[in-house]
């Protein structure tokens, strides 16, 4: 673990540190000041015991590499697959759950144990290697989605699961809530305002009968997620998706919503349009995270809830404020 020791020394010595994985999420959160020391976490498998359904990897491990290793044993750990280059640490720090969240739950439910480097270069471990654990506070969940502001994730233990025996995409013209009511726990309901793309996983007979019962037409694969210069990820209550869709009619954008979840992936060709999309989301009491582009757009658009409490936690973990400064707009509560 010479690499980790060097990493710890670098972090301890730096004034400001920006954590870089594959660089797929540079635009998420506020900009880190130029001049910050870039650090990278090593990649590699640490241990994998298929019968325990747990795997430990270093934070810099690409998601695709992890997926390949698990596939050899018929298992998977469903992290957001949209950027195959993305690192495990980066996906977790970004709190990205992927499009199968409706059935499989959010990324935070995958992380069992985390090791991270603090601003002064110490290694802290939280959680535990077993699939069930309530020993001490839930640091793993706290680190998921923290955008690297509490610690540099160096190693994680994740919960794996058997790969589905079979999976199949199909389409319905009905809105996602209607489709969901006809199905037992679909894996994904991707809705673009015209059609609902339904991912079903499991036994082929069950999939066929569910598709028939719900009147779905089989298609070859998933819908195309919005690919534009300016992209954002909105979070609204799942019940507000219909109303949001009506508002987005007025905005020059393409979008796909995850039915039953409330995540909406929005892409636009102009920064203004993404701002308009954000206004539509906020009108439905949601918020939109800037994911890519739109440099002049506020990263979050809304004030962070429980701001003081979050800032106290930031102070507790990174008193000198050197980890990914600016990513989350903490207030300084300590002198």
């Amino acid at each position: 673990m010479i690499e980790l020791d060097a990493l710890a020394r670098t972090i301890a010595a730096a004034n400001a540190v920006v954590v870089v994985g594959a660089g797929t999420k540079r635009d998420v959160g506020g900009a880190v000041p130029s001049g910050a020391t870039e650090v990278r976490v090593p990649a590699g498998m640490v241990s994998y015991e298929p019968a325990d359904m747990t795997v430990s990897v270093l934070g810099g491990t690409p998601v695709a590499l992890l997926d390949g290793a698990l596939a050899e044993h018929g298992q998977e750990c469903p992290l957001d697959p949209r950027d195959s280059a993305a690192t495990v640490g980066g996906v977790l720090a970004g709190g990205l759950s992927g499009h199968r969240r409706l059935r499989l739950g959010p990324a935070r439910d995958r992380l069992l144990e985390v090791r991270f480097l603090t601003g002064d270069g110490r290694v802290v471990r939280g959680g535990g290697p077993t699939v069930k654990n309530v020993t001490g506070y839930d640091l793993p969940r706290l680190l998921v989605g923290s955008l690297g502001t509490l610690g540099v994730i160096t190693q994680v233990t994740l919960r794996t699961q058997p790969r589905p025996q079979h999976s199949s995409w199909a389409v319905s013209d009905a809105p996602p809530d209607d489709v969901r009511d006809r199905l037992f726990r679909p894996t994904c309901l991707a809705w673009d305002g015209r059609a609902t793309h339904v991912l079903l996983e499991g036994h082929p007979e069950d999939i066929a009968s569910e598709q028939a019962r719900a009147g779905l037409r089989r298609v070859d694969g998933p819908p195309t997620w919005p690919e534009h210069a300016h992209r954002g990820r909105a979070s609204v209550r799942p019940g507000a998706l219909g109303a949001l869709a009506a508002r987005l009619e007025e905005v020059a954008c393409s979008w796909i919503a995850e039915g039953g979840v409330g995540t909406v992936h929005i892409g636009t060709d102009t920064e203004i349009a993404l701002a308009d999309a954000r206004a539509a989301v906020e009108a439905e009491s949601g918020w939109l995270l800037r994911e890519t582009g739109a440099p002049n757009l506020d990263p979050f658009g809304i004030a962070l809830p429980n701001f003081e409490l979050m800032s106290r936690i930031k102070d507790a973990f990174d008193p000198s404020g050197k980890l990914n400064p600016g990513r989350l707009p903490y207030t300084r509560v300590a002198a």
């Binding site: 759950s97 506070y137 998921v144 923290s146 409330g262 809830p305």
Partner: peptide, 13 residues
């Protein structure tokens, strides 16, 4: 009740 809230997962904590 939204899938994600901005900032840290205080709920999980």
């Amino acid at each position: 009740l939204e899938p994600d809230v901005p900032g840290l997962d205080l709920r999980g904590c």
